[in-house]
């Protein structure tokens, strides 16, 4: 189970550029649960995922996973429990190393790395078998640099890498946003398969309302660093893209109403 309690993060605190990226966010996610996160640009979705992954220290609150309080753990230590796929297809793989080398590193995510061969013969055949399941013909190109592949191929491989050793938590941050529609569909299908097969506990950020309603068993909508809606169970199953868009519209309308008030406050106090 993932327990996020009262976490807060302010960037550039005390400067004119101050951003309250996360304000007192709390939620628990049951094992095997698949949570979709939506929200406007800058609402704090990526920051939330980074907070769970340990990219930066938190200002407030705690994060624990599978009974371990990870709040003070550095990012590389949390990686033992967490698999990640980034929005940018170039972030998840080492471009100047081969497909086989990249995958071999994923096969030791969070484990000790010593002076054993990175790619022993037994691993090589396993690499080939698992890459074949992607149906992209990459099993014959294991010794090509990963930098020569397309974004979609790299993202599929990153997904394979993140789930190579079953993670306690899978973090997906708009991992299909940079792909063309066809590749995006392919990667989403793969995502769905892997999560279902391994019953992975997952946090997935998306801007696609189609994905948001089709995937996952729970959905939260973030706004200005807080959770605005938390939809689960039957309500999540019933949700349609139009409902979600309506909620975005509500937020926008309220923002507009707020604007004059904010203006007044600024004039009064600044």
């Amino acid at each position: 189970m993932l327990e996020v309690s009262g976490i807060g993060k302010t960037f550039h605190a005390g400067t004119p550029n101050e951003v309250f990226a996360l304000r007192d966010v709390s939620f628990n996610l049951l094992e095997g649960s698949f949570l979709i996160i939506i929200g406007t640009n800058g609402s704090g979705k990526s920051t939330l995922l980074n907070a769970v992954a340990g990219t930066f220290p938190l200002d407030r609150g705690t994060v624990s996973l599978s009974g371990h309080d990870m709040t003070k753990w550095p990012e590389h230590r949390r990686a033992k429990l967490i698999g990640r796929v980034f929005q940018n297809p170039y972030s998840g793989t080492a471009p100047n190393m081969t497909i086989a080398e990249n995958l071999a590193m994923a096969a030791r995510r969070g484990l000790h790395r010593g002076l054993a061969w990175a790619i022993p013969r037994t691993l090589r055949s396993e690499l080939r078998d698992r890459v074949r399941t992607l149906n992209m013909g990459l099993e014959d190109r294991l010794d090509n640099d990963i930098g020569t592949l397309s974004g979609g191929q790299r993202q599929a491989l990153t997904l394979l890498m993140a789930s190579w050793l079953k993670p306690d938590l899978l973090l997906l941050d708009e991992h299909t946003a940079a792909l063309d529609p066809k590749s995006a569909d392919q990667v989403i299908r793969l995502t769905h398969e892997i999560i279902k097969r391994d019953k992975l506990t997952t946090l997935m950020v998306t801007h696609s309302m189609q994905q948001a309603v089709r995937l996952g068993d729970r959905l939260i909508m973030m706004h200005r660093g807080s959770i605005l809606h938390d939809i689960q169970g039957a309500e999540k199953a019933r949700a349609r893209p139009e409902d979600l868009l309506q909620r975005f519209e509500d937020v926008r309308r309220r923002e507009q109403l707020d604007a004059p008030v904010a203006e007044m406050l600024r004039n009064t106090y600044v």
Partner: peptide
């Protein structure tokens, strides 16, 4: 970034 995410 990648090697950190893989626990290095």
């Amino acid at each position: 970034q990648m090697i950190r995410a893989l626990g290095g």
